[in-house]
């Protein structure tokens, strides 16, 4: 399945600064594997070592949060758009 992936803010740095890329996968987990093959370090931004999705990064299939679907097992269709969105702290200065 060819899926368009939109990547926000800090996660862009692990995909060569791209904001949008194409990737393949029958579900979200496979999609992440596909991107990880090309951009090692990508998966660690989204999941812990046990394959559990981080709770401070949201992944949307079209406009729906996959946590409210089947998580990483959520199936993808041709032409879907997946957005990856980390929490932002906001205003500005204290780390």
């Amino acid at each position: 399945m060819a899926v368009q992936v939109q990547v926000t803010s800090v996660i862009q740095k692990v995909v060569d600064g791209q904001r949008q890329l194409d990737a393949e996968g029958l579900n979200v987990a496979e999609l992440i594997d596909d991107i990880e093959r090309r951009y090692p370090g990508f998966r660690a931004q989204l999941m812990d070592e046990h394959g559990q999705l981080h709770r401070f990064v949201n992944i949307y299939l079209n406009d729906e949060d996959i946590r409210f679907m089947q998580g990483a097992a959520t199936a993808l269709s041709d032409g879907d758009c997946v957005s990856i969105l980390p929490a932002l702290a906001g205003g500005c200065h204290l780390p």
């Binding site: 709770r55 401070f56 990064v57 980390p86 200065h93 780390p95």
Partner: peptide
């Protein structure tokens, strides 16, 4: 966002 990122993972402005 059920939990905050661990310190240092999401950079500040």
């Amino acid at each position: 966002y059920p939990a905050p990122p661990p310190p240092g993972l999401v950079p500040s402005c």
